[in-house]
Design a protein around this nucleic acid. Structure first.
Length: 392
RNA sequence: GCAGGGGUGGUCGAGUGGUUAAUGGCACCGGGCUGUAAACCCGGCGGGUUCACACCCUACGUAGGUUCGAAUCCUACCCCCUGCA
């Protein structure tokens, strides 16, 4: 077992922005990177072939502990050889720990020091998730990057509540770390690549909380770093706080995160958020927006958002985004996609999801290239102007 | 021809004397969605004036009538469906 689960190298910086290489046991990932969300072992509406195609070329996707734990169950995935073999996705996978569900399912869970008791959103039966169980599930899934089990408080959490939450998250970070490394030593990791010469273990990221309170964020950061992780994430943003506040927190905290580790901003964001947070020092992102909004009829374009449901596109024979070279934009018109969507045809949602992911991933490619060539400042300015120009 | 049933807003369909511009569904129009309880949720939806409160028109097959008041009751007519001839 190699000591380092991940390789991390910064290739270029511009201001706080950095372009780097993240070496996982399943391939090299150029950063800044956007990770499509595939909660249940599927990036909804998009086949793996399409995620691997040049116009998209996703190098790493997400899976979710909570959802896969409930269905089909960790042991089913383990019995099938881990999440990669189970799904047929051979590139890297990062699994979230279930911490976000502590927030998103807040009204149907009970929080204790030991862990969280959820009522299953599927059938209502009680299910207990803890740092240890989350690590066990993630080992069974065999993801390449695991996340510590955290508590994600609402963005508006007051100082006192945010402190209590942060401290619980810090204790859970220690427990996650301990159980994770025991499991690695025990060989519980179901996802070791067949051709893995280095016999690399899974990686584990810690999560910084503290809501919008910078003193708490700094404290959370130092306590998380104290535990020692392969990478560090900012959690608990884009969960109800105002956008300028989110940018402030990222701007203050990201540059203070260990420079020799990747920095991951969880759950963010819109195209604008990606560029703005890269500018503030973030390397990794994930968000459901491109797929969820795609399924709900919205296309992201270089000129802003386009609601395909709008009557104005009924006979528009242009692609979703005239500046986009994705497979959908090369072949289909707004009129056709709108027709599919209006008719309730699943292909409408599929095409929008594909385009949105291609747009997000292409944006990140351009971001990386801009940083490497020292033109990120200009890129950022022009990109934002483009987004604000409006779809005609 | 006789008997019975029925004609309601873009559409299907409630409503059988008084908060009825008229319940619902669909269609249509618009908005939202940030570590996915989401192919979901919310709003609008006769016309006109008004920023708005509000007001004015026009509406339940057609034309009359009864009534303080009618989509609802009465009469005639038109049309549709079912059964019998």
């Amino acid at each position: 077992m190699t000591d380092e689960a991940l390789g991390w190298e910064v290739l270029a910086c511009e201001g706080a922005a950095r372009a780097g290489l993240l070496r996982t046991r399943r391939g090299v990932i150029e950063t800044p990177v956007f990770m499509p969300v595939g909660t249940l072992g599927t990036v909804k509406g998009v086949r793996f072939e399409e995620l691997e195609a040049p116009d998209t070329d996703a190098r790493i996707i997400l899976g979710n502990t909570y959802h896969l734990w409930l269905r089909p169950g960790a042991e089913v995935v383990r019995a099938c050889g881990g999440l990669h073999r189970f799904t047929g996705w051979g590139r890297a996978i990062l699994t979230d720990s279930g911490g976000f569900q502590v927030f998103s399912l807040a009204h149907m869970r009970k929080l204790t020091e030991q862990g969280v008791e959820f009522r299953s959103h599927i059938d209502g039966r009680p299910c207990f998730l803890s740092p240890e169980i989350s690590m066990e599930v993630q080992a069974a899934l065999g993801s390449d990057i695991c996340m510590a089990f955290d508590e994600c408080p609402p963005g508006q959490a007051a100082h006192e509540a945010a402190r209590a939450s942060l401290e619980l998250t810090a204790r859970w970070a220690g427990r996650s770390h301990a159980r994770f490394h025991d499991l690695q030593r025990e060989g519980a990791d179901a996802g070791r690549p067949a051709n893995d010469e280095g016999n690399a273990r899974q990686a584990l990221f810690g999560i910084v909380q503290g809501a919008t309170h910078l003193d708490l964020r700094r404290e959370s950061l130092s306590r998380t770093v104290e535990v020692g992780f392969d990478g560090y994430a900012i959690g608990g943003l884009s969960v109800g706080e105002e956008k300028p506040v989110m940018y402030e927190v990222v701007e203050a905290i990201a540059p203070e995160m260990p420079a020799d580790r990747p920095r991951y901003l969880m759950g963010v964001g819109t195209p604008e958020d990606l560029v703005e947070c890269v500018a503030r020092g973030v390397d990794m992102f994930d968000c459901v927006i491109p797929t969820r909004n795609g399924r709900n009829g919205q296309a992201f374009t270089s000129r802003g958002r386009l609601n395909i449901k709008n009557a104005r596109w009924a006979t528009d024979t242009r692609p979703l985004d005239e500046a986009c070279g994705c497979a959908v934009c090369r072949r289909h018109t707004r009129a056709y996609v709108r027709h599919l969507y209006a008719a309730g045809e699943m292909l409408g949602a599929v095409l929008l999801s594909h385009h949105n992911l291609a747009f997000f991933l292409d944006t990140m490619r351009r971001v990386r290239q801009a940083i490497r060539s020292g033109e990120f400042t200009r890129f950022r300015r022009e990109f934002l102007v483009g987004l604000g120009s409006g779809v005609e």
